[in-house]
Structure formats: C-alpha cells, structure tokens
C-alpha cells in the first residue's frame, strides 16, 4: 500500500495534533503509573500515598521473594492460567471442528456456543456461584443424578476443588473466543489439501493430525498466548467467588496483590509483586507480537 506523502502543508502539523491525545493517554495513564509503581516497589513505604523520601531499597523484593505466600500465588496463577488455556483450547478445537461442518441450524448453534463470551464477568461469577452452591446448587443436583456419584464436593469452599471450580468458570467464559479464532483459522486451510490427502488414502484422524493441526498452528499459538495473558490478569472470578480462599487455594497473584494493598496496606511489596507480574506479561506479550509479525511476512 502506498502511504500518503503529499505536497500539502496541512500534512506537516496534522500527525502531531491527531496523535496527541493517544500519546498523552499512554504517557499519563499507562507509562507514568507503571513507572510510579516500579518506583514505589523500591521504597520502604508501607502506606499508599507516602512519598519517596526513604531512598532506594530492594527490601520489598527480598521479602516478597522469600515469602512462601508469593510462591503459592505464582503457583496458583500458573495452574489457573494453564488450566484455562488447556481447557479452552481442547474444548475450542472440538467445537470449532464441529461448527466447521455444514448442518441445519448452524447459525443458531454458533450463537449459542459463543453466548458465554457475551456475559459480563460479574454476572458469570454470580450465576456460577449460585450453581456451585453446595446445598442448593443445581450442579450438585445434576451430579447426584449420575448413578456412580453419591457424594458431591463443596466446590468453592473446599480447598481441593475451589481452584478447579474457578478454572471451569474461566474456561466456560473464554473458550468461545478460542472457537471463533479457530473457526477463522480452519477457513484458511484450503479444501484442496483435504481432498488431496483423502485421495492419497488418509483417514479422518490422519487428516486431522497431518493437515488441520499444522494449519492451525499459528492461530493456536495466538489463542494460547492471549488466553494466558488474560488469565494472568483475571481478577473478577477469584475475587467474587472465593476471595483467594479457602486457605489460599485460589490466591492468584492479582488477588494477592490486591489484598496486600487494601487489606494489609503493604504497597511496597504489592508493587514488587506487580513487577513480577509485569515481567511475566511482557515476556508473553513480546512472544505474541512476534507471532503476529511473522504472520505478516507470509
């Protein structure tokens, strides 16, 4: 594409004016806060809002890194994000393969499958909380109907099940996104490849592993990274459904940071943990951008 390079005088000042608001926005609302937070993480201040008179110190990082709660939070974050990605991708591939076929009523089915993506997070949290209710929840009722189950978990209040329960909600909420991307990816795989492979004698399973999966490699990478990044930052489900409990079983980094700040007023260590999260996000984001870039070269 040719880009504008006119002999027009307006063109000299226009870009600066038009880009101004976005630059200000990014500078004041994104970069400045991040820098400020980094600075706070290097001070001794316990209360939010105090100045930087104390000078630089790595105390917060040392105490945060030596705190088993931090590593628990990192572990919970990894399990939560990894579980979400695994569940969403597997369910997403199955759904995309099915929806890629022609069948009567496909349009409606598509909408129904995508529906969870459309629900506000707070609503999803509350509805699932209600369904998980150990005494009156419809989920346990459904489980009891199955002939081989005679005892049901207490879900959100059981340390062994709470994280699983929240991962399930997050999978339910995010897998439609995977479906949409994978469907778009499936459409880019040429039918000729399937026909050629069928003529060569490959069965449906071979075709899936030899043609579909390789064809979806790049989309899958994008899905995995975006879901990881989003799950890292997911706050609503855990905060509303378990508050990080029971006994820290769902205390992911984001929630941990929030409580450090607002329950224990340890801003310094909260921001130190934030920096950890920032590093993790920057690594994932860089990979994501690299993948998008390489896509352009094709």
């Amino acid at each position: 594409m040719r880009l504008v390079d006119h002999a027009d005088r307006q063109d000299r000042w226009l870009p600066a004016i038009m880009l101004g608001p976005v630059l200000v926005c990014i500078l004041l609302l994104v970069i400045a806060p991040l820098a400020w937070g980094l600075r706070i993480s290097l001070t001794d201040s316990r209360m939010i809002g105090l100045g930087f008179k104390d000078g630089l110190t790595f105390k917060n990082y040392l105490s945060v890194l030596s705190d088993p709660d931090t590593w628990n939070a990192v572990w919970v974050t990894i399990v939560f994000s990894g579980g979400t990605v695994l569940g969403s991708v597997l369910l997403g591939i199955a759904a995309a393969l099915v929806l890629d076929r022609e069948f009567w009523g496909r349009g409606i089915v598509r909408v129904l499958v995508i529906l969870p993506w459309a629900v506000p997070h707070v609503v999803a949290a509350l509805v699932w909380q209600w369904m998980y209710n150990p005494d009156f929840g419809v989920l346990n009722y459904g489980l009891l109907l199955l002939p081989w189950i005679d005892a049901t978990p207490k879900w959100l209040s059981d340390p062994d099940y709470a994280l699983l329960a929240i991962v399930l909600v997050n999978v339910w909420k995010t897998y439609p996104f995977a479906v949409l991307l994978l469907l778009a990816g499936l459409q880019t795989i040429s039918d000729d490849l399937y026909e050629a492979s069928a003529i060569d004698g490959a069965g449906p399973v071979r075709r899936f592993f030899d043609i579909t999966l390789p064809g979806l490699r790049r989309v899958l990478a994008i899905v995995v990274l975006l879901l990881l990044i989003w799950s890292f930052g997911n706050f609503v489900f855990i905060f509303l459904m378990t508050q990080g409990g029971p006994a820290g079983a769902t205390n992911a980094l984001v929630v941990h940071i929030y409580f450090e700040t607002f329950r224990f007023f340890r801003a310094g260590s909260a921001f130190a943990m934030g920096s950890l999260l920032l590093v993790m996000s920057i690594i994932l984001t860089s990979i994501y951008i690299m993948i998008l870039r390489s896509q352009e070269d094709d």
Binding site: L34, G233, I257, A267, S281
Partner: peptide, 19 residues
C-alpha cells in the same frame, strides 16, 4: 498500543489509584 492492552489491569490500577 498493542502492549498497553496486554498488561494485567491491576498493574495500572494500583499506581493510578495512588495518583
């Protein structure tokens, strides 16, 4: 621009809260 939408919101929310 792309990076800004990738950060976990809490990283912006905390310092912004202070400011």
């Amino acid at each position: 621009l792309l990076m800004t939408q990738m950060f976990p919101a809490i990283l912006l929310a905390l310092p912004m809260f202070v400011v």
